[in-house]
């Protein structure tokens, strides 16, 4: 038996596979198939200080090896999360990560203060949601924005803080450095890439929001590249995500510099895919005599 555990910002995950925010609800949706405890952790559905209605439907469009979504952060609010979902999550899951979004810095801080007083293990700051008119990704597309929200939130919590980055920028490493400088314990990337699909019969965009975030295998090489660039730019750990659907993908992401991975869209295609990835990583470790996953993080040998 190999040791699949990983430690990020002092938090121990029994394995490196985490369900990505917005793809796994608050852990309640797949328990008919397998217990939440099989996953290393879960990043819960993005939450805001007040409940949020989200965007009008249709909110999803299929694309080549991927999907576009424009949910727009529909959620029951941080108080609802703490009251209704967190007790069960703590009981049934491993590492519980609260993903937080907001329109203003005050919104972020208010939500994080509630979570700081709760049982969540980590906070993932969502400064990268492409589907909301105010806030969301607008914080994540400039170094000043990323720095100011990270710094404000850092003062509001002692919990390990992950900053989730958007790929829709010219230089993601500059944003990563800004987050690191303001006290982020970890960065996670990538959120979705802004995209669009049009129905050629009606000449209407398929998404009612016109544009939405692209995820799935289509974005995987972009994610690997960005994780690698960030790994070369910062000294804090990275959680890699974006189109991971197989164990090989996950290992590739770790070689690029990720200490753990998140999976999302692949779960829609195959709900068992996270478990298959965990098994596949274990097999790879056994076959290659790897005792700890830290041995492979960032170990790509660039030309």
């Amino acid at each position: 038996m190999v040791d699949m555990s990983v430690k990020i910002a002092g938090v121990e995950f029994p394995n490196p596979v985490i369900a990505a925010s917005g793809t796994y609800g608050n852990g309640e949706c797949y328990t008919d198939l397998y217990p939440l405890s099989k996953l290393g952790g879960i990043s819960c559905k993005g939450m805001t200080i007040e409940p949020k209605l989200g965007n009008p439907p249709p909110r999803i469009a299929e694309s080549y090896s991927g999907i576009l979504n424009s949910v727009g952060l529909q959620n029951i609010g941080v108080h609802g999360f703490v009251e209704y979902y967190l007790p069960t999550l703590k009981e049934e899951g491993n590492v519980i990560i609260a993903n937080v979004a907001g329109a203003t810095i005050d919104d972020y801080v208010a939500a994080v203060e509630v979570l700081d007083a709760s049982d969540v293990d980590m906070i993932e700051l969502n400064i990268s949601c492409p589907n909301v008119k105010q806030g969301g990704a607008s914080w994540g597309i400039s170094c000043e924005g990323a720095a100011s929200v990270t710094s404000a939130v850092r003062r509001a919590t002692k919990k390990p803080l992950i900053v989730k980055l958007t790929p829709n920028v010219t230089d993601i490493t500059a944003i990563a450095k800004a987050a690191e400088a303001e006290g982020a314990d970890c960065i996670s990337l990538i959120n979705t890439l802004l995209g669009m699909r049009i129905d050629v019969k009606t000449r209407r965009p398929i998404l009612k929001n016109n544009v939405g975030g692209l995820s799935g295998p289509a974005v995987f090489p972009v994610a690997v590249r960005m994780v690698w660039q960030c790994h070369n730019a910062v000294n804090i750990p990275i959680i890699g995500m974006g189109g991971i659907s197989t164990a090989e993908d996950a290992i590739e992401m770790m070689l690029a510099g990720a200490s753990a991975v998140q999976m999302g869209t692949a779960i829609f295609t195959d709900p068992y895919s996270p478990l298959k990835v965990i098994d596949g990583i274990e097999e790879y470790m056994e076959e290659n005599g790897i005792k700890s996953l830290s041995e492979i993080v960032g170990q790509v040998k660039p030309w």
Binding site: G22, T23, Y24, G25, E28, C29, Y30, K45, G54, P56, P57, P58, R59, I60, I67, N69, V71, Q74, I267, F268, P271
Partner: peptide
């Protein structure tokens, strides 16, 4: 999307 209530796209 997911079909099981997780992704909240089919609203």
């Amino acid at each position: 999307g997911c079909g099981v209530g997780a992704c909240v796209v089919c609203s």
